[in-house]
Simulated scan of single mutants.
Amino acid sequence: MYAVFKRELFSFLNSMVAYVTIGVFLAVSGLLLWFFPDTSLLDYGYAELNGFFSLVPYLFMFLIPAITMRSFAEERREGTYELLITKPITLWQIVIAKYLACLVLVLLALIPTLVYYYSISKLGLPEGNIDSGAVIGSYIGLFLLGSAFTSIGVFASALTKNQIIAFAISAALCAFAFLGFDYSSQLLSMQSFETTIASFGINQHYQSISRGVLDTRDLVYFISFSTVFLLFTKLAAGGKRK
Score class of each variant (00 low, 15 high):
Ile165Gly: 08
Leu83Ala: 12
Leu91Ala: 07
Ala168Ser: 06
Ser199His: 15
Asp218Ser: 12
Lys161Arg: 10
Phe35Arg: 13
Phe155Arg: 04
Pro112Thr: 00
Gly239Thr: 15
Phe143Met: 14
His205Ala: 08
Ala101Glu: 04
Ala73Leu: 01
Val135Glu: 02
Ile164Tyr: 11
Tyr139Met: 04
Phe5Cys: 05
Ala101Gln: 02
Gly79Phe: 05
Leu188Lys: 15
Tyr118Val: 06
Ile165Thr: 09
Leu107Gln: 10
Leu41Asp: 02
Thr216Gly: 15
Lys87Gly: 10
Gly238Arg: 05
Ala172Ser: 12
Glu8Gln: 06
Thr233Leu: 02
Trp34Val: 02
Pro57Arg: 00
Ser151Leu: 09
Gly212Gln: 09
Arg7Lys: 03
Leu145Glu: 03
Met1Trp: 09
Phe193Pro: 11
Phe167Tyr: 02
Phe232Ile: 12
Ser40His: 10
Gly201Thr: 06
Val28Thr: 09
Leu173Thr: 09
Leu125His: 05
Leu159Arg: 06
Tyr46Leu: 14
Phe36Ser: 12
Ser138Gly: 14
Leu107Asp: 10
Thr39Met: 13
Ala175Thr: 05
Phe35Trp: 15
Phe72Tyr: 08
Tyr81Gly: 06
Ile202Phe: 11
Gly51Ser: 04
Glu127Cys: 11
Ser15Gln: 04
Phe72Trp: 11
Gly128Thr: 04
Pro57Thr: 00
Gly137Leu: 07
Leu188Cys: 15
Ile22Cys: 09
Phe176Trp: 08
